[in-house]
Structures are given as structure tokens and as C-alpha cells.
Nucleic acid binder design. Structure first.
Lengths: 221, 221
DNA sequence: ATCAACGAGATTGTTGACAAGATGTTCCGA
DNA sequence: TCGGAACATCTTGTCAACAATCTCGTTGAT
């Protein structure tokens, strides 16, 4: 039997495990997170769990109400729209800077992602497409050199996993987003800052539309 | 003698007091924050202080290195520029939305702030001008209804207080920023979203210029 | 004079037990 | 049957002491 995880190590481990569980759907919004339960199932001390929950609360992933414990925070559609608007503002900034600052290696990887994305959509390889999508956004942010924006965007994504999940499942979604992603790639790799910002904005405006229509769909009886 | 502040109450009190001390210059970047010292001088328990420091670390105001304690984080000019770029992106979003969503009361207060600002600059009332400036930014964000952006902007401002301080002191600064502020007011109150975003961007681009030139000034021998 | 090893004191990290609040259950009276 | 008072249980919050680690000044050898 291994020792209990404690302090910094356990804190990070517990937080990561909960984030993971949220992505995989093992934890659903509203679910209670009892300190002792988590401590036992993850083999950590209660102290480590408490600290991990504080971290997750700072990321707006869980909600802690005094004397009543922590639960996974539910994100309303309205809030998801606002989060995506902020993402749009920050990703426009990153795309614009990336267009001028990216080095040749980064531009080459961007173009390669474009090629692979076309292929993935043609093949119906949704998992591959999703991974490429994520790498594309990462790479644009990385190439921009905007560390502050990178941290902000990471934070914004935390509570959104559930929505991204629902959206990616919609039929025909990859075919719709592919040209938008290609436009971002062309503009950034081609070194056109204004076009890059416009392409990023167009893409995220479309995500917002999807979110809103998913709200209407959910509300229907 | 009152009881020691404990838990949630003490935590918030200590965090606020440190934020305040930073604004007023009582704490300088790099300064160590020893838990027991803070506990005694603020009349709180060490536990409350620890939690407050965690909160401040989540806001990037202090830096905690394991086993070595917390210190006020220093913000480089480069990072200040990046922070301001993010502020620019988010405030453009808010200004744009505020231009269409502000109600009549809010537009009236905006116009009033414009009048008062002119007067403050004419009178050389720098404190008044600074307060109006802060209220202007608050009001635009409030009128936008963008709660997520509001929280992000709050976070971004935390580590910046020192720089704002240095900037506001530069001679002729209010006269320079006044027309920019008036342009924001006109566009938002007048209901022109694109002009509002442009005005906000122009204002923050100018702040970035000031930051960069202040770097050059500091570097000079 | 420089440097490494050492140790005392200072400071943070961790633990386990207890206090206190919230939640759920039972049981009594109307 | 319903309402609610009293009780039992679950869960989080707090504390004080202890353990682990770091800092810094001292000493002694080269």
C-alpha cells in the first residue's frame, strides 16, 4: 500500500483527477464533492483535497458554499456565450500577434494541421479532427507569445468542457467548422494580422451561434 | 482586545488589507510575507493568513514558492504590456456591447462623467480625475452586462496597481488621456458600437505606448 | 581571503482530534 | 395524515502542536 498523497503533490493530483473526471463525464454539474470521500478514493489526505477544491473554485470549476461543501458548478448557456465572447476577444488578439510573430517552424506546423484536418473530415475521423482542432488553438496562442492571454484562455476553458462536448457531437459540425479553421491557418501562416483576427472572430461568432441554437434545442419539449 | 479573526472572515480581511497595502505603497514587489508576522499584525490566525495568501496567489498578486513562503510578485514591463493588451481586447468587447445595451440612466451618467472630467483637468484636480477615470471604466463594463469579462478584468488589474501609479504621475498625462476618454463616452452614450470599440482600443494602445516609454525611461542611467 | 561544512533559529508544512454547523430521521400531537 | 420538535448523523471548519525544511551567520581549513 502506497502512502497517502499529501501537500503540493496530492493537491495537484486531486485537482487534475477531478478535471479529468469532469471531461470524461464521470462528474456532472451539481454533484457534491465530499472531502472525505475524495480523500479515500484518491488516496490523499483531507488537507490535500481541501486545497485542491480551493484551486478548482478559483478556476470556477467548482462552487464552494461555506459549511455546505463543494459541488461541480453548472454553467448556464448565457454564461457559456459570455465565456465564448471573451475567448473571441482574446483569441483575436493572439491570432493577430501570431500572424506577425510566428516563426517558420510554427507556420509549417500550422499548414500541416490544415492538411491533416481536411483529411480527417474526409475520413470521418472525428477524434483526430478534435485533437487537431485543439492543437491548432494551442499553436496560435503559443506563436503569439502572449503568455497572459494564454493563462486567461486556459481559465476560461475550464468550466466549458461540458458544452464543448455537446457541440462537437452535432452532426455536420466538423464540415461546418473546417473552412473557418482553414481561414485562420491561411491568415496566420500567410502573415496577415487583420485577416487572422477576422478569421478567429468569425469562427468564434459561429460557435456562439451554435451555443445559442443548442439552448433553443434544449429548451424545446 | 477583540478575538482573532478566523476562517472566511479573516481570510477576506487579510487579503483585502494586503491589496490595500500594495496600492498605498506599504508593500513593494519582492517583499516577503511571513505568515506569523501577518497573523500578529492583522490579528488573524495563521490559518486565515495562509488561505488569504493562496487567494492572492490565484490572483497573481503574490508568488508562493514551496517551503520558502510568499512574496509580492514583481511585474515586468513586458508583462504589463501583455496585461494591457488583454485588457484592451476585453474592454473593446465591453465597450461594443455597452454601446448597444446601456440604459438611459447609464448613458446619462457617462455624459456627466465626461463633463466632470473636463472640469477636473481644467482645475488640475488629479485625484478627482483619477476617480472619474476608474468610475468610467467600471460603468462601461457594468453597462455591457458582460459578467465574465468583468471578472477577468478585475483579475488583470490586481498585479498592475504599481504601474498605474507610476503612469498617472507623469506630467501632462491627464490632458493627453482626456480626449480619449471623451471619445469612449461619446461613442458608448451615442450608441455606436464600432466607434466605441475603436475608442477603447485607441485609449489602451496609448497606455501601452506609455508603458513602453516608461520602460525606456527606467532603463536610462 | 575564499570556501565548505555546520548548526541554531526562523518559517512553512502536516496531522489528528475536536468544535460547530447542516442534513436527515423519528416520533409525537393535532 | 400532516407538521414540526427533538435527536442522530454526516460533513466541514478550526486549532495547536509537531515535523520538515530553509536561511544565515560562524567556524575552521586551505
Amino acid at each position: 500500500m502506497t502512502d497517502k498523497l499529501t501537500g503540493a503533490a496530492g493537491r495537484e493530483y486531486v485537482a487534475n483527477t477531478i478535471r479529468q473526471a469532469l471531461r470524461s463525464g464521470d462528474l456532472v454539474p451539481g454533484q457534491r464533492l465530499v472531502e472525505l470521500d475524495l480523500a479515500e478514493s484518491y488516496g490523499a489526505t483531507r488537507g490535500a483535497v481541501r486545497e485542491a477544491l480551493q484551486d478548482l473554485a478559483a478556476e470556477d470549476i467548482v462552487e464552494i458554499v461555506p459549511r455546505r461543501g463543494a459541488r461541480i458548478r453548472a454553467v448556464s448557456v448565457e454564461e457559456a456565450v459570455q465565456i465564448t465572447e471573451c475567448r473571441s476577444a482574446l483569441e483575436q488578439l493572439c491570432a493577430r500577434k501570431a500572424a506577425t510573430r510566428a516563426d517558420e517552424e510554427q507556420r509549417a506546423e500550422l499548414r500541416l494541421i490544415g492538411v491533416d484536418m481536411r483529411q480527417a473530415v474526409a475520413d470521418g475521423a472525428w477524434d483526430t479532427y478534435s485533437a487537431l482542432n485543439q492543437r491548432l488553438h494551442e499553436l496560435v496562442i503559443e506563436a503569439s507569445g502572449q503568455e497572459v492571454a494564454r493563462r486567461q484562455l486556459e481559465r476560461l476553458n475550464g468550466p466549458m468542457v461540458r458544452f464543448q462536448f455537446r457541440l462537437a457531437l452535432r452532426p455536420g459540425r466538423p464540415a461546418q467548422s473546417l473552412p473557418q479553421h482553414l481561414a485562420i491557418i491561411d491568415a496566420v501562416a500567410g502573415g496577415d494580422p487583420d485577416a487572422a483576427a477576422r478569421a478567429a472572430a468569425a469562427h468564434l461568432d459561429d460557435v456562439i451561434e451554435q451555443l445559442k441554437s443548442s439552448a433553443a434545442q434544449t429548451a424545446a419539449p
